[in-house]
């Protein structure tokens, strides 16, 4: 979450994408370059803007920002990839369409 490793990991774990393809896919969805994916400075801003979850740090817990389950709803939509616990949360909370 310092950069975009969790997002690239999702494409590998769920879709079996090899690394170059997974990086290109995530960069495309985020609207950044592949090199930006490993830049903490860039990704700090991008994750904040898109609500993809950021670290708690000493200055802020980002109380108005998505984190954990909330962020995973956004990640699933942005990456167009199913996230198991998000689907189950949606069903169990009565949010299913």
């Amino acid at each position: 979450m310092r950069t975009a490793g969790d997002l690239v990991a999702r494409m590998q774990i769920t879709r079996g994408m090899r690394l170059p393809k997974a990086k290109e896919y995530v960069a495309g969805k985020l609207g950044v370059s592949v090199l930006d994916l490993c830049d903490p400075g860039v990704m700090y801003e991008v994750r904040g803007e898109l609500g993809l979850g950021r670290f708690y740090d000493s200055e802020s817990t980002y109380p108005a920002e998505p984190l954990a389950m909330e962020a995973k709803f956004r990640i699933a939509e942005l990456l167009d990839v199913p996230i198991n616990c998000v689907g189950r949360f949606r069903t169990l909370a009565g949010l299913a369409e």
Binding site: D6, A9, T14, G53, A68, I75, C85
Partner: peptide, 8 residues
């Protein structure tokens, strides 16, 4: 799963 963001 309610508490982490990264794949678990």
């Amino acid at each position: 799963q309610a508490n982490v963001t990264v794949p678990l």
